[in-house]
Nucleic acid binder design. Structure first.
Length: 340
DNA sequence: AAGACGAAAGTGGTTGA
DNA sequence: TCAACAACTTTCGTCTT
């Protein structure tokens, strides 16, 4: 469930972005929530007639059902098409058919494996509010892993979690290992191991997610405005252009950018709060944000100016000494800072 | 009491001989 | 296979507001 109004600008024009699993205000771009629970069908019915037509086409085929959802089950009602009761002979026949069908559907161990795996997948994915297309990606990856017999010695759950982790990265809505570990009963370490293994064996080449992938989700968890989000994204853009990102954990960098942006945007969050949503420690937030402040000083002051925040006030919020502010030339005089 | 600071020691993963 | 290494965490005492 989510609100029907944008908390940022009050507009009711909310758009659901199924690609990213986010609900976004079409006026100001604010991410209302990134957690869409229990999505309905992917289509919208504009009137009853259409709804009828579409509903009759049956369940959408889904990779997440072990036989692709294409089998017909024999219903338990013992009625014929007209809804009349069947005679006893027919009844017996149908019950025999049902028995066989159940035996055939969950036939070999591979099939059984998939049944268990996909129910686990659904559980984890719905805990995290992962959209349908990403779930299907995960199923696909998992199928390939099974086919290549990559599950030996690994638990089904850890491979499922790993597949989901990979699928999220493919679709640029990266979750952290911590988040997936929390939503499943698998330890972070095991997920990581399984992930690295299947990623290598299946030739999934996934670059590490850029910190910006985490900004919408973290910001909306913290209840930050769209304005502040975009400040954070701007900081990250400049930072990555200058190569200040490499080697650093993306979540820590994202957290730092949000911390700074929240101070500029006049809705300051504590290091603790930011660290919590990013699942890093305060120490890491501190280290990253100190680096960013040092090396993006002018840009930060420039943004402060745009946001009509007094430099001294900002210095206070970010615990930068006033000397540092002066020496780095808020007025634009002595800036001959070179990087070592 | 809360927020921030940073030193010091520990952890787990990567790299390179 | 082992050791060095970088990033990050844990823990903790201190300072400021």
């Amino acid at each position: 469930m989510y609100e029907d109004k944008c908390p940022e600008c009050g507009s009711k024009e909310l758009v659901t972005d199924h690609e990213r699993g986010e609900v976004i205000c079409s006026k100001c771009g604010f991410v209302v929530t990134d957690k869409i629970i229990d999505q309905g069908p992917e289509w919208r019915a504009f009137d009853d007639e259409q709804r009828e037509k579409r509903a009759r086409t049956g369940a959408p085929t889904s990779l997440g059902i072990h036989d692709y959802g294409l089998t017909t089950t024999i219903g338990p009602e013992n009625k014929d098409i007209g809804g009349k009761d069947l005679d006893p002979i027919q009844k017996a026949k149908m019950s025999r058919l049902r028995k066989w069908q159940n035996r055939l559907r969950v036939q070999d161990s591979t099939e059984r494996n998939l049944v268990i795996a996909f129910s686990e997948l659904e559980k984890i994915a719905s805990n995290l509010g992962i959209p349908e297309n990403v779930r299907e990606e995960a199923s696909y990856i998992y199928r390939r892993a099974v086919k290549k017999r990559l599950i030996r010695g690994r638990s089904i759950e850890s491979v499922v979690a790993a597949a989901l982790y990979a699928a999220c990265r493919v679709h640029k809505i990266s979750r952290t290992l911590d988040e997936i570990a929390e939503a499943s009963n698998v330890k972070k370490k095991d997920i990581g191991k399984s992930y690295r293994y299947i990623a290598r064996e299946l030739n999934l080449k996934l670059p590490p997610p850029p910190p910006s992938d985490y900004i919408p989700r973290f910001s909306s968890k913290l209840g930050l405005s769209a304005r502040t989000q975009s400040l954070a994204l701007r900081l990250l853009k400049i930072a990555s252009e200058r190569g200040l990102i490499s080697g650093r954990g993306p979540t820590g960098v994202a957290a730092a950018a949000i911390y700074i942006a929240s101070a500029i945007g006049d809705e300051k969050k504590t290091q603790r709060d930011v660290a919590e949503v990013a699942k890093v420690t305060e120490v890491t937030v501190r280290n990253r944000y100190k680096e960013l402040v040092e090396r993006l000083f002018e840009e930060i002051m420039e943004m402060a100016k745009e946001e009509r925040v007094d430099p001294e006030e900002l210095a206070l919020r970010l615990n930068i000494s006033l000397d540092f502010v002066k020496n780095n030339g808020v007025m634009g005089q002595y800036n001959s800072r070179e990087s070592p």
